[in-house]
């Protein structure tokens, strides 16, 4: 498969990559710019980072974001993993129906998900009289809703890859059904569960649209706070925040990739032995 790529395709790739990264690079550079208006470079400073870390609004929103992301991802992982186990044993027809249902939150536009959940919460409060105010709880419920499918679609393939007799083998060797589950099935689908959980966390951290409709005025998440700041237009602190997020993500990706590469290499070495 390996081929020399032509100069033309190299240039093309470089241009697209430049398009994708230029705005981010500009933000990073401007986050160290003294000048408050964005266009001109007037000198290096860490001021915006300092201001960011003393911004109560942003810090509070950060805490909320972490709470919502973790609680909703854990819940989605539990519900989604159980669901995948159930779906795996369903017959073909039922499987197909449930998969269709699971596609809905992924395929439908976020704004539809957002307003429909908002309608639900409003309906429950006004028509059913349940005192469910828009806030952290409704945020968490909404995030669980859009996170579950990611867990299911990460766990299901692992179940499919599993030897269909592995569970039987565990029973055969003396495990009761519970032992068979946590000694054999769980370790095998764990990579899928972890991937699903991480995906849920990232989607939850990043979600703006659905949170926008379901958060209510009191509980802000980071993306909501960013939106509020951006509307006021003057916010070099946002450049600093963007830079931090970008660097954190970059480091996380590098670490996870390096470790998986090392694991791969170790595996290959073992085979050679």
């Amino acid at each position: 498969m390996k081929r020399k790529s032509s100069a033309l395709s190299r240039i093309y790739t470089a241009v697209i990559m430049a398009f994708l990264y230029m705005p981010i690079l500009v933000l990073i550079v401007l986050s160290f710019n003294q000048n408050k208006s964005r266009g001109a470079w007037t000198g290096f400073t860490f001021d915006w980072y300092r201001k960011l870390f003393t911004n109560r609004l942003i810090l509070g929103a950060f805490v909320n974001t972490m709470i919502v992301a973790l609680v909703s991802s854990v819940a989605a992982t539990l519900i989604g993993t159980a669901a995948a186990l159930g779906i795996h044993t369903m017959n073909k027809w039922m499987k197909k129906a449930v998969r269709m249902l699971t596609y809905i939150p992924i395929m439908s536009p976020e704004i539809i998900m957002g307003v429909s959940l908002m309608l639900l919460f409003v309906f429950v409060r006004t028509e059913l009289g349940v005192p469910l105010e828009l806030g952290l709880l409704t945020l968490i419920l909404s995030h669980i809703t859009f996170n579950i499918p990611y867990v299911i679609f990460n766990v299901l393939p692992k179940l499919r890859q599993m030897d269909s007799y592995a569970y039987d083998a565990a029973l055969d060797l003396g495990c009761n059904p519970w032992q068979a589950f946590y000694k054999v099935i769980l370790p095998e689908i764990m990579p899928g569960i972890t991937a699903g959980f991480l995906m849920a966390v990232t989607y939850s951290l990043d979600d703006f649209v659905i949170s926008y409709f379901t958060a209510g005025p009191t509980s802000q998440t980071l993306p909501l706070a960013i939106w509020g700041q951006l509307r006021r237009r003057v916010s070099p602190e946002m450049n600093a925040l963007s830079t931090i997020i970008f660097v954190v993500v970059l480091v996380l990706l590098l670490v996870s990739n390096l470790s998986s590469m090392r694991r791969e290499r170790r595996g290959r070495k073992a085979v050679r032995l």
Partner: peptide, 9 residues
């Protein structure tokens, strides 16, 4: 078992 069903982990 058929195809052994060894525990890969």
């Amino acid at each position: 078992f058929q195809r052994y069903a060894l525990f890969p982990h």
